[in-house]
Write a protein that binds this DNA or RNA. Structure first.
Lengths: 197, 197
DNA sequence: GCCTAACCTGTCAGTCGCTGTCAAGTTTGT
DNA sequence: ACAAACTTGACAGCGACTGACAGGTTAGGC
């Protein structure tokens, strides 16, 4: 009973709405598609769509599904003595399902970066993830016996830089026409910087 | 005639609206303040407020005034052979007027980071600045005789990391209760990473 | 099986950010 | 002094989003 029937049907409906919405977005554009259009496409009321997605942006950004929980689990599983930069690179392995359907991922990315509202929502989401990652890093350092001082910018700076590289890699990967794997693009981006001892 | 009277009055009105709006935001919160409230406070119609600010977020984010043009000028003025990381640090000197009124800057920053809509808008703005910076970096490298290859993620990754450090420094500076100068916080944040040769 | 509580749904009405349009007044350059 | 350019308020409208209510469906204890 880890997943009740209700939860499963909820996920199914959410997925159905998401798919229908994405089809409409791809067809006539994000801004030109209203929530009413989406609701009509899946035969629901506008109100019900908002019961599955808090905002219109979430329908798209949620698709990127950079599952925060998964990332934090990965981070916590890394050896505490490992260099932060290496741990962060491993955390981003969670995103590697990009490789599964490159053309689909590219479609969404293009839509996100081309639509100001989506771009802002996406960046904000990344920022929230960083907050969670930083919290874990601080705990881990303390447990490893070398805690950060309260005003040390290091964990935040390293995390922010790593996420910056993530976005840069997405741009590069898109610009290159999705040649090669995304993991390679990420490796290249993160290799341009080295954390100081 | 570098500045016509119309432009000056326009700026004056814009400033007046911004000040009144900020006072209301600080008093009763950003979300709880409507554009109508702001319009009433300055004795204008709602429509006219939108003639001075494209969006509600811009009233606040515009205050941060990370003047893009100034930053690009600074960047172009740096010697072409200088390490990118150093140039980027110099670019951020433009933000140093933070030191003028630390409590005011802290107020706005807190508001921005506490309000999801503002946070998203701010991060999006930073992203746009990064695009402009990257473009300049690419031109400068080409002129210096060592152009980047089209798919090189380096300029983007370095710029994104530097801006990540900027945000991290803002957080640290706020968390430390604005002890010390913002420039110091920035130096510390950017010192945690070193670009690879 | 039954009943109650929890849940999902559509409908309606309302708020708020934001935009187009138009008529009326003001300013600018000649 | 006059035409072009600019500014303004008023009005109407769209679309994202929310609260409230009523009716139907489902889940779980008895």
């Amino acid at each position: 009973m880890s997943e009740s029937l209700r939860e499963r049907t909820r996920r199914a409906v959410q997925r159905e709405i998401g798919d229908a919405a994405l089809a409409l977005f791809a067809e006539r554009g994000y801004d030109a598609t209203t929530i009413d259009d989406i609701a009509a496409a899946v035969g629901m009321s506008q109100r019900s769509v908002f019961r599955y997605f808090a905002t219109k942006e979430e329908i798209v950004v949620g698709k990127l599904e950079l599952a925060v929980d998964d990332m934090l689990d990965v981070l916590r599983a890394r050896p505490a003595g490992e260099p932060v930069w290496t741990s962060l690179r491993r955390v981003f392995d969670v995103v590697d399902h990009y490789g599964d359907q490159p053309e689909f991922a590219a479609l969404i990315h293009r839509m996100v970066f081309d639509t100001p509202a989506l771009s802002a929502a996406y960046l904000h989401r990344l920022q929230l993830m960083q907050d969670a990652v930083v919290a874990v890093l601080i705990v881990r350092a303390a447990e490893a016996g070398s805690p950060y001082t309260a005003d040390d910018p290091a964990p935040r700076a390293l995390t922010a830089s790593a996420f910056g590289c993530l976005v840069a890699a997405q741009h590069s990967w898109l610009a290159s026409g999705t040649t090669g794997t995304f993991a390679e693009a990420l490796d290249r981006a993160m290799a341009t910087l080295v954390p100081r001892v």
